Deep mutational scan, measured.
Amino acid sequence: EEERTFTNEEEARKAKKEAEKRGLRVTVTKDGTTWRVRIG
């Protein structure tokens, strides 16, 4: 499991799409101005 943080919503969405392409489970949460993308 890996967690990545982004300040840019577009980049967070891109990371989510890429992980889904690899067949991984992805959770995206917004924490104030930060987007957290949890993969795995």
Rank of each mutant, 00 (worst) to 15 (best):
T7A: 10
A12N: 00
F6A: 01
K14P: 01
N8E: 06
R36S: 06
E2T: 13
L24T: 02
T27P: 00
W35H: 02
I39Y: 08
G23T: 00
R22E: 06
R36T: 13
L24M: 08
R13H: 12
K21S: 13
E10P: 05
T27K: 06
K14G: 07
E1H: 11
V37L: 12
R13E: 13
T7C: 13
T29G: 02
A19K: 02
E3S: 07
V28D: 00
E1Y: 15
K14L: 12
K21Y: 08
T33V: 10
D31C: 07
L24D: 03
E2M: 12
G32Y: 02
I39Q: 03
R25P: 08
A12M: 11
K16C: 14
E1C: 12
N8L: 06
I39R: 02
A19Q: 03
E2N: 09
V37Q: 00
K16P: 00
E18R: 04
E11G: 05
E2Q: 10
V26A: 12
L24H: 07
T29D: 05
T29F: 13
R22N: 09
E1L: 13
R13Q: 14
V26N: 00
E20Y: 04
V26Y: 01
T27E: 08
E3Y: 10
I39G: 02
T7F: 11
R25S: 11
E3K: 03
T27Y: 09
R36E: 04
V28R: 00
V37Y: 01
R25V: 11
T7P: 09
E10V: 09
T33P: 13
F6Y: 13
T27D: 05
K21I: 10
E20K: 04
E2K: 08
K21W: 06
E1S: 10
A12Y: 05
V26E: 00
T29S: 08
A15K: 03
T7Y: 11
R13T: 13
R4L: 15
E10I: 11
V37S: 00
R4T: 08
I39P: 03
R38G: 04
W35P: 01
A15I: 06
F6I: 01
T33G: 13
V28M: 14
T29W: 14
R25G: 04
D31W: 06
W35L: 03
G32I: 02
E2G: 07
N8R: 05
G32M: 02
K17H: 14
G40Y: 15
G23V: 02
F6G: 00
W35K: 01
D31E: 12
T34Q: 10
A12I: 02
R13V: 13
W35V: 03
E3D: 08
W35G: 01
E3G: 05
T7E: 11
R38H: 13
E2F: 14
K21E: 13
F6T: 02
R25W: 10
K21A: 14
F6Q: 00
R22V: 07
I39K: 01
I39L: 06
E11L: 05
T7D: 13
T33R: 06
T27H: 07
E11Y: 04
G32Q: 03
E9M: 06
K21L: 13
K16Q: 15
R13L: 15
T33Q: 13
E18L: 07
R22T: 05
R13F: 15
E11F: 04
G40R: 10
E10W: 14
E9K: 07
E20M: 07
A15L: 11
E18N: 06
R22M: 13
E9Q: 07
T34G: 08
N8Y: 04
A19T: 02
R25K: 13
E2V: 13
K16S: 11
V37I: 08
E10H: 10
K30E: 06
N8I: 06
E1V: 14
T34A: 08
V28W: 04
G32L: 03
E18W: 11
E20I: 07
T29K: 05
T5Y: 12
W35R: 01
R4D: 04
T7M: 10
I39W: 07
E20T: 04
V28C: 07
R38Q: 10
R13N: 14
V26K: 00
E9L: 11
K30T: 14
K17E: 15
